[in-house]
Amino acid sequence: MLDRVTQTDNTAPDPIHPTAEIHPTAIVAPGARIGAGCRIGPWCTVGPDAVLAEGVVLTSHVIVEGHAEIGEKVQVSPFATIGLAPQDLKYRGEPTRVVIGARTMIREHATVHRGSIGGHGITTVGADCLLMVNAHVGHDCTLDHHVILANNVMLGGHVEIADTVFVGGGAAIHQFVRIGRQVVVGGMSGVEADIIPFGAVMGNRARLTGLNLIGLKRRGFPRSQIHTLRAAYRSLFRTAGVFQDRVDITEASFGEDPVVQEILAFIRADSRRGLCRAGRELLDEEEGAEAAA
């Protein structure tokens, strides 16, 4: 049974909304702010700098620590942790942050660490994301909206993931990797380089296998634009010559298409990890997949 409880600090207005429900075994530190309709279940721990927006549900045995901001209607399953210190030996307890967007679901044993002074000082998970069982989001990562991390996905520090990306179970993403929007990463892949928007990768070490054609079709991209994207992809990754020359040729041929321009801008942006390319052993497989599509 959930009860309404108050904090012990009587010198300041009660920051727990009257409609919040907190189990008697939960510990909510003085200073934490708990929004309307929140439900904090058995054996949860909420630290003094945490902010829970309206309708947040901490099912049971959840730890929220540090400067953590959790958006509206976020649901957190048992034994997940949010805002614990980064796994960075240079960290000395600085007041870094973690922010979780609205309606995101964080499943059992998932971990989201707060940022570090050596990075952005903040770890961000966007709205409507799903972190499945045992997923790990390292310090200073930035996930945009509608990102799905399947079971046991591991993100090293400083990883950047754009909107509507799916990362398959057991995949490991190297620190500082950038992943463009609407990418699909195959399960058990080891990703050590940046992935262009709309790409599909798999393998250890991961290589481009083509475009995320299924995702493009599901999200309503017109057939004409998909054909343009495929032609641009072949120009970039399936032709001979110096890669920078191929980038320039692709822009001259297809640069008027805004989606192609997005890929070219991603390629030209600063990168610490380089670009994920198509492996030679995958070229014949990719050709067959594109022909079937």
Rank of each mutant, 00 (worst) to 15 (best):
V99I: 14
R97P: 00
T96M: 06
V62R: 10
E21W: 14
S60W: 03
D3T: 08
A80S: 13
P13V: 07
E21N: 07
C44V: 03
L58Y: 04
P42T: 00
H23P: 01
I16T: 03
Q75A: 13
A26F: 06
V57A: 14
V56L: 08
P30V: 08
G93Q: 12
R39Q: 14
H120P: 00
S77D: 11
C44I: 10
H17V: 03
L89H: 08
A110R: 10
R39G: 08
G121L: 10
V56R: 06
G93Y: 10
D88V: 11
R107K: 13
I106A: 05
R33D: 00
T96L: 07
P15D: 01
V98Y: 04
H113G: 01
A29F: 04
G35S: 09
T45N: 10
V62D: 11
C44F: 02
T25D: 14
F79N: 13
G101Y: 06
D9I: 07
V74F: 05
P13L: 01
V56F: 08
V112W: 09
R114G: 06
A20K: 07
V46A: 04
V46K: 07
D49W: 09
T123F: 11
S116Q: 02
G115P: 10
T11C: 02
T59E: 15
I16P: 11
T11Q: 10
P48T: 11
G31K: 01
Y91E: 02
I106W: 10
T96N: 12
G47F: 05
C44W: 06
V56P: 01
Y91W: 13
V62A: 08
A102K: 15
R107L: 09
E108R: 05
E108N: 12
I34E: 04
P13I: 07
P78E: 07
E108I: 04
A20R: 12
R39W: 00
V46C: 07
D49T: 13
I40R: 10
I70K: 12
I106V: 14
V99D: 05
D88K: 09
H113Y: 06
P24W: 03
T11H: 10
G101P: 00
G37Q: 13
K73L: 01
F79P: 00
M105C: 05
D3L: 14
I117F: 11
A29W: 08
I27S: 09
T11P: 00
E65Q: 14
T6E: 15
I63K: 13
D3S: 14
H113W: 05
E94L: 02
T104M: 05
L89D: 03
A26L: 06
G31S: 02
T25K: 03
T19E: 15
V74H: 11
G47S: 08
T6K: 14
T45I: 15
G118A: 05
G119Y: 04
V76S: 06
I63Q: 14
V112A: 10
C38L: 09
D49C: 12
E72P: 00
Y91G: 09
I122K: 13
T104I: 08
Q87I: 10
G35Q: 11
